[in-house]
């Protein structure tokens, strides 16, 4: 059940229709082990989303390769799921049917089981009572929670989350940070979680390992291990060691962010 992922010298260069090229990812190596929560932090536009999509197989790499259990990734598989940066809900489906989108093709599941799963995750993301609402009737934060529930419902071994909490209010965000740990339980289930965020505190709070990315072309400047045992409570955010790690990452990223702004 537990898989591992190797990212080996991965580059990505985009070619715009105008002929211009963008070197988005510039030689990334990582070794993702089962039962571990990883975060990507780095300046805007440094290739985090691009790398996440390459890990899922939505985009090919330009150079280098990505291995899942020793086999090269060349397309999405049902054991991985993405929470997209934009909610990407189908406007013609209500909340329940949007959450169901990823499990409809699972032959091992009966219709009632599917509904139970949808129900469970609707509850978890706090959308009880909104089951039959359409996306245009939901707020941005609610849409984002449907997006999250849709990926969680698949119960994937590898969960790739692209700023899943970005449009939540501060309180809901804190609650979801705690809740997410209980929901995924990656230590016991052996899952790999990759979590992209701009919130350094959030990254440190949730992760076993934080990858800090440089400005474009994105490379890993530093890999930081967070030693606190999981699941964590919000109180951990006040511990001196936590604050120290947070501070270090902040220092490291400030220069890169400045470069991004100057561009």
């Amino acid at each position: 059940m537990s898989s591992s992922i190797q990212v080996e010298q991965v580059h990505k260069t985009f070619m715009k229709p105008t002929g211009e090229t963008v070197h988005a990812v510039g030689g990334v190596d990582m070794d993702l082990r089962p039962g571990t929560f990883y975060s990507f932090v780095g300046p805007s536009g440094c290739g985090k989303t691009t790398l996440l999509h390459m890990i899922h197989g939505l985009l090919p790499t330009t150079r280098g390769r990505i291995l899942l259990d020793g086999e090269e990734v060349n397309g999405p598989t049902p054991n991985k799921a993405v929470v997209f940066q934009q909610a990407l809900l189908l406007p013609w489906r209500n909340v329940t049917d949007n959450i169901k989108f990823g499990i409809e093709n699972d032959r091992n599941m009966s219709a009632t089981e599917r509904l139970e799963i949808c129900d469970k995750y609707t509850q978890i993301v706090g959308l009880r009572g909104f089951e039959s609402h359409y996306p245009h009737e939901l707020s941005g934060g609610m849409q984002q929670r449907v997006n999250l529930a849709r990926a969680l419902a698949v119960n994937p071994e590898i969960l790739l989350m692209d700023e899943p909490f970005a449009s939540l209010d501060a309180q809901t965000r804190l609650l979801m940070q705690e809740e997410l740990q209980r929901m995924i339980d990656w230590k016991n289930s052996g899952k790999i979680v990759v979590f992209v965020t701009h919130d350094i505190e959030e990254a440190v709070f949730l992760s076993d390992v934080v990858f800090c990315f440089s400005f474009r072309p994105g490379t890993i400047m530093k890999e930081i291990k967070v030693p606190f045992p999981t699941p964590r409570t919000l109180r951990v955010k006040e511990e001196p060691e936590f604050l120290q790690i947070k501070h270090d990452i902040w220092e490291l990223l400030a220069d890169e962010a400045r470069k991004a702004m100057e561009e």
């Binding site: 799921a81 997209f84 934009q86 990407l88 990823g102 093709n105 698949v154």
Partner: peptide, 27 residues
């Protein structure tokens, strides 16, 4: 295009993309 990416991401077979994405989307 992003809806096709979405379908692809959740491993929806191509022929289902027709009635799950393209027809409702162009209605």
């Amino acid at each position: 295009k992003e809806f096709q990416t979405l379908a692809n991401s959740f491993c929806v077979p191509q022929r289902q993309v027709l009635y799950k994405i393209l027809i409702p989307g162009s209605l």
